[in-house]
Design a protein around this nucleic acid. Structure first.
Length: 571
RNA sequence: GGACCUGUGGUGCAGCUCGGAGUGCACGCCGCCCUGUCAAGGCGGAGGUCGCGGGUUCAAAUCCCGUCAGGUCCGCCA
């Protein structure tokens, strides 16, 4: 039907009689003797010159047969890749007429996302979405190549899986053949892939769709894609090597630049220096500890186990209202307050300045090599709270848009094994209950569990968590100690994970794995703040699909078959 | 569950503080004109329940309350 893609025609083709297909991007008529029709496909635009009038409108689907001709002197258009040539002696066939679209498909104005999503099929026609989704395909292809080349075998795991009442909320699927029983859609193929290790597929990967019924955000949709992988006879360093190859290959394929080796930071160091477990390393602004200086302070606001400080270079000119805003922000994160000090030639300037003694003032004024014109923020609180508040402030004040380069990857290692306790006073697994504890900390499981480090790790890019993984427990004795630390009884473990624990009795290789989000990775490559921009049919924040109207009710017949009764709201 | 922001012809905006007739701009659309345009140009035209409901007022796009939709964030995301 067509001989060339629109934007592929060049001077080399001059003289050829060719057919191109696409949409009418624009028609420019000059009386009844001459008309220009810009034909667009996903590659771009070629100008067709029509002698006489032509009955086409924007977004008509056409096949244009014409002769590739060098444009006359003075009519070259260097804004178009095809601007040296045009099609002449054209025959325009209308393959499909079109109503005027609800919004213009050029990129001249930003269209409201609500409108874009309602007519997503038109939005997809735009250069912006074409570029993003094709970039995503490039990323996927590079990832598959990298994993194949490293000896990984792609295996598909079920979308209908068994409920495991823990972790993120699962999407539930009622069973028709066994009414009253349910499947769930996987939050990740975690257990399935560990069983593949028992099954002898010692290097598995999959571009896996994962589903989590949790509230949506700019970087979170109900469904998302992960490069999911697991390897037997592999430790943390092996996994880092495998994943690095995949991610760096994808980065190179997507951006043309191969990043250097990915550095590492421990979870504890990351919290201490950046106040977060997903540090943005594109800018400095490291947290400083002033706890010692304020250990015996008279200043009430600073009498806390930890006093942390952050220097904002040149921040002294922040307005009082901006500082009030930031104080509110800090409080919204649970801080009792936010102290700030302008560094001036005459010393510190702050509502609190007069309460500090000489040593304290000197310490604050010297934070991070502060200079006149800088601003110092201080938060006094429990250690982790102080770190996290200042960490959030650091990102708010210093972080470029997530999408902005350069790309700084970092491995965050040695996550704690447990974090906090649940409503029943049981410890909670920070990663998941199959994560191997750090070998040096095994003795602490029973004595000081919150100090137990794990063999869990994250990969972080520009302040976004790309993914996480861990070395898994393959020994029954360690697994049972972890379960008991988590308050999971033998019976409960058996009912929930029995098939996994059972499998491990029959020869489980040591194994470790990882999974990272392709949506997030692609969004950053594409320079997008929002993963919806790299997803063909995303949901809104309330979980709706504005194009299809999902979620929707089903007929009574369907409900009867599933033996499901809808209970009115509030009853 | 909570905080904040947004909603005005098909699209993107302005108008809202300080209430006075649906007022304006750009794009698109329709018609006419135009033989080298490419953000084409010229002339003319159509198109609106100012998200929805209620309240205040002589009078509401504008003020107040509620509600719906969209967004950003907190909670949540083993």
């Amino acid at each position: 039907m067509r001989d060339f893609l629109c934007a592929s025609l060049r001077e080399d083709h001059v003289g050829q009689r060719v057919a191109v297909c696409g949409w009418v991007a624009k028609r420019r008529e000059h009386g009844e003797h001459l008309a220009f029709v810009d034909v667009r496909d996903h590659t771009g635009i070629i100008q067709a010159v029509v002698e006489g009038s032509v009955d086409v409108r924007s977004e008509f689907v056409v096949r244009v047969t014409g002769t590739v001709t060098r444009r006359p002197e003075g009519t070259l258009n260097d804004k178009l890749a095809t601007g040296q040539v045009e099609l002449t002696d054209c025959v325009v066939e209308v393959l499909s007429a079109a109503e005027p679209p609800p919004f213009q498909l050029d990129d001249r104005v930003e269209i409201d996302e609500q409108v874009r999503l309602r007519y997503r099929y038109l939005d997809l026609r735009r250069e912006h979405m074409q570029r993003n989704l094709r970039l995503r395909a490039v990323v996927n292809a590079a990832l598959r190549r990298a994993m194949d080349a490293q000896g990984f075998c792609e295996v598909e795991t079920p979308l209908l899986w068994a409920p495991t009442p823990e972790g993120s909320r699962e999407f539930v699927v009622p069973s028709r053949l066994q009414p009253g029983e349910f499947y769930v859609l996987p939050q990740s193929p975690q257990i399935a892939k560990q069983l593949l290790m028992v099954g002898g597929f010692d290097r598995y990967y999959q571009i896996a769709r994962c589903m989590r019924d949790e509230d949506l955000r700019a970087d979170r949709q109900f469904e998302f894609s992960q490069l999911d992988m697991e390897a037997s006879f592999a430790d943390q360093d092996d996994i880092f090597a495998f994943v690095s190859v995949a991610v760096l290959d994808a980065a190179e394929a997507a951006t043309g630049i191969r990043p250097g080796a990915i550095p590492r930071i421990t979870w504890a160091d990351s919290l201490d220096r950046y106040g977060t477990d997903k540090p943005d390393l594109r800018f400095a602004m490291v947290l400083h500890d002033l706890s010692d200086v304020f250990a015996a302070t008279e200043v009430k606001a600073f009498s806390a186990p930890t006093v942390k400080a952050l220097r904002l270079p040149g921040g002294a000119d922040l307005s009082r209202s901006r500082l009030d805003e930031l104080t509110l922000f800090a409080k919204s994160l649970g801080a009792k307050g936010l102290a700030w000090f302008r560094v001036t030639a005459e010393g510190l300037e702050s509502p609190l300045a007069k309460f500090l003694d000489e040593t304290e003032s000197a310490a604050v004024a010297g934070v991070d090599g502060a200079q006149v014109g800088d601003l110092i923020f201080c938060v006094a609180d429990e250690y982790e709270a102080a770190c996290r508040v200042l960490g959030a402030l650091r990102v708010t004040l210093g972080s470029p848009p997530v999408s902005e380069g350069p790309h700084h990857y970092v491995w965050v290692t040695e996550f704690p094994m447990f974090e906090g306790v649940d409503d029943e006073g049981h410890l909670q697994a920070a990663h998941h209950p199959f994560t191997m504890p750090h070998p040096d900390d095994l003795d602490l499981i029973e004595t000081n569990p919150l100090k137990v480090r794990s063999r869990a790790y994250d990969l972080v890019l520009n302040g976004w968590e790309l993914g996480s993984g861990s070395v898994r427990i393959h020994r029954a004795d360690i697994q049972s100690r972890i379960f008991s630390a988590l308050g999971i009884s033998d019976e409960e473990a058996e009912s929930r994970f029995g098939f996994l624990l059972g499998a491990f009795k029959y020869g489980a290789p040591p194994h470790a794995g990882f999974a990272f989000g392709i949506d997030r990775l692609t969004a950053i490559f594409a320079g997008e703040e929002n993963i919806r921009e790299v997803i063909a049919y995303p949901k809104t924040q309330s979980g709706a699909d504005l194009m299809t109207g999902a979620p929707k009710g089903v007929t009574d017949k369907v409900l009867r078959e599933l033996r499901i009764k809808i209970v009115a709201k509030g009853s």
